[in-house]
Amino acid sequence: MTMSASDLMTRPTASLHPNDPTLGALQPDSTNDVGADFQLSVVIPVSRESDTIRDDHERHAAALAEFGRVEFIYVLDGQFPRAMAALEALSREAGHNVRALVFNQTFGEAAALSVGFKHARAPRILTLVPEPQVDPADLPDLVRGLDSADMVVARRTSGVGGSVFGAGKMEWVLKRILQSPFADLRCRVRALKREVAEEIVLYGHQHRFFPLLALRHGFKVVEQTVRPGGGLPPKDTSAPLDYSMILDVVTVFFLLKFLKKPFRFFGGFGLAVLALGLVATGWLVFTRLAFGTPLVDRPALILSSLMVVLGVQIIAVGLIGEIVTFAYTKDMRDYRIERIIE
């Protein structure tokens, strides 16, 4: 089912309604006109059953009260009856200010965020987890940070949750290979402008790298130090060795560096392997002809030929990548014009 979730997410035009029945009488599309004056949308993916969702909501709502009309969008990533009951009660009391979207099964946090962003109606968006990862008193500062940046990422001072083995591991890897400046990617508390959410498509586990993706897309992303709130981290980061994380780092690495010029990636590898193979083969042939060094009783020639073959294959795959890029290049006008002043 993860496959179908990512399919769904990469196609922004696809209808999401079969998968996100909305609670009660609240129809997201029909209420667009009502919500034109929201100042802030808070998107909260819920990834596990929770009994404290109501208390947490009230703390968050109180902290954000200064921003005027704030809408809360809870996205339930699966069936959680108790959390659901609490949210139903909340949305009845708070009217259009609290909405809950429910997935019929687990699609992951990135999918939940994307759907939440789609339904958000305010120009500014704050992402949270139901448990207080960050001291609610610090949340308004994060939102205010948007005045001078496109995205504000919370960085907790201490008490970072999660496994001892896992703490800081991903950040360390990303810092080395992608020069990521972020120290606390596990903290999901992020404030962003609407256009960031519109432009960056999240799938798989990419919500972790959201700030990094935004930064590489040219947005201004700043980190802001906050006090930790003592809540548990989202469950997908607690495993000591997380293979999906490794895959995601590779994907993000490729997406960020070589999406538009695949041959720069494949070509480098392929040409190196090919050159090595050609030199080795040449040397073997030369020594055989000049000095009569036998080739029969050792696998040297097969291995060097294998290297040549491998090099050519990598190059050919890279060129196919380049042809795909070329063939789809008309769709790759990825600039967005903010306005034209005539």
Binding site: E195, G218, R333, Y335, I337, E338, E342
Partner: peptide, 22 residues
């Protein structure tokens, strides 16, 4: 005079493409 304003920095090729399109 016409001014095409990008939302953010996309690079020179994209800027030229936008200019050519407009």
């Amino acid at each position: 005079v016409r001014i095409v304003k990008f939302r953010r920095n996309y690079g020179q090729t994209q800027a030229m493409m936008a200019g050519i399109d407009v």
